[in-house]
Write a protein that binds this DNA or RNA. Structure first.
Lengths: 234, 234
DNA sequence: TCAAGTTTTTGAACGCGTTCAAATAATGGG
DNA sequence: CCCATTATTTGAACGCGTTCAAAAACTTGA
């Protein structure tokens, strides 16, 4: 998404473009929704689409953001009913499936958007994380105190793996990745409970600190200002 | 890769094409090595390249296969010296880095090749798995008997995650993913030792059976011949 | 109102991966 | 040897994502 348009008409055009694109995406799928088609259906020249969106991937990122928002709305109510963690995990996955199923052929592009993290994707990441936060906070019994704070991050990273499997799953009706989601929930719930044991808990922490590897590495440390610090304290 | 060429000259042309492509890949990187450039440098028309290779991705798959082979050769000797599992894991990762560093911009395409598993990729998967088998079998002390058989598969799947991180790592010199590799080794080694405990061991088995989810799902079960069976017996 | 500046919109082009029908070369049986 | 068949090779094209210089429309200050 390019920097905000200056005028009202500009904003309207951008909105129409985005709206048309999402319509095409839903109706024709990824391949058939070329930039030319989108621009034409929005009554706009091809190159003008690039005035408002840096790339096609950019529009797909918007789609993904919308889908995540929809997913959040769909399941936020169910996450607060005092169900088990296992049940909550399934709620999140089921909502994801429900919302994203029509867009399965966007999978690889979604993945690209998620993996090459940039400014625009932060919003998506924030929604995903808050989903798992609610899943944890609303579960009864609550997971062990020691992991309660970090469990959402763990579930989030795990869900990215599951999402990867879904994106490239070409089995009929994506049965393979659906089964993966179904089986993931109880295993994770069991794991959470076992984290009461110090041995298991220390493994959990090892894995988490692994995932934070290089979090504090700044690419261009030209200025002498060092601010890395210890991100994950006690 | 299309079905084998029928004549000797055909094989020679295919070989030259592949050879030229790999040269271009090494010298100019992914983007600059267009099919047109490769074909031209091989002294062959553009469309002819498609007679021998179904797609550009197909050639990249060959590159990945070569790199994995090179990686295997590079570290197979070190894996048999009776070092610790941790040390062996690092040997495998270090060899991967050494071999693949010049091809970092192929990362996303490599990933696509690996994730959309098809016939051609089985060979790559086989090499990767055998790498981890050697890493486990050659380590002293040997990991607990109960996980010794399945640990290689676990390490393999884990390495795919690490590989994903590397592929999309745009920190300077890929420091982030390098750090991830370095930190992964001791954590996994510790995990392997802890698998002596029944609790941890049962978690290990849960995770593994998760990864096998849907292994026995056949896409086109038109014929009545059911052969799924139990893949992972005691 | 007019001119200067900025924002919006366009048409034409580039190079890419890929496809295809048709031309050429090699092969093998009568 | 010649012809039918098969294998190899080509040129031309398609649609794609993306870029760019320049036109058009709009805004604003004098």
């Amino acid at each position: 998404m390019k920097s905000q348009p200056r005028t009202h008409k500009g904003q309207a055009t951008q909105a129409k473009l985005l709206h048309t694109a999402l319509e095409c995406f839903a109706a024709q799928g990824y391949r058939a929704s070329s930039m030319r088609v989108i621009a034409a259906r929005a009554g706009v020249s091809l190159s003008h689409a690039y005035y408002y969106f840096q790339s096609k991937e950019d529009i797909v990122a918007q789609l993904l953001l919308n889908l995540r928002t929809e997913q959040l709305q769909k399941c936020v109510a169910h996450l607060d009913e005092g169900n088990t963690l296992e049940s909550n995990i399934r709620v999140v996955y089921d909502a994801a499936l429900e919302v994203m199923e029509p867009y399965h052929d966007f999978g690889p592009t979604f993945l690209k958007v998620l993996l090459s993290r940039e400014a625009a994707n932060e919003e998506i990441a924030h929604i995903e994380l808050s989903l798992w936060e609610k899943a944890v906070a609303g579960s009864r019994p609550l997971p062990p105190l020691g992991i309660r704070r970090d469990l959402p991050r763990f579930l989030w990273l795990l869900s990215n793996q599951v999402f990867t499997a879904w994106a490239y799953d070409n089995s009929k009706d994506h049965r393979r990745s659906k089964l993966l989601m179904k089986n993931t929930a109880p295993v994770v719930a069991k794991f959470a409970v076992l984290c009461r044991l110090p041995v298991v808990r220390s493994l959990f922490e090892d894995v988490l600190s692994l995932l934070d590897s290089g979090k504090d590495i700044h690419d261009e440390p030209a200025s002498g200002d060092h601010k890395s610090a210890a991100a994950r304290a006690s």
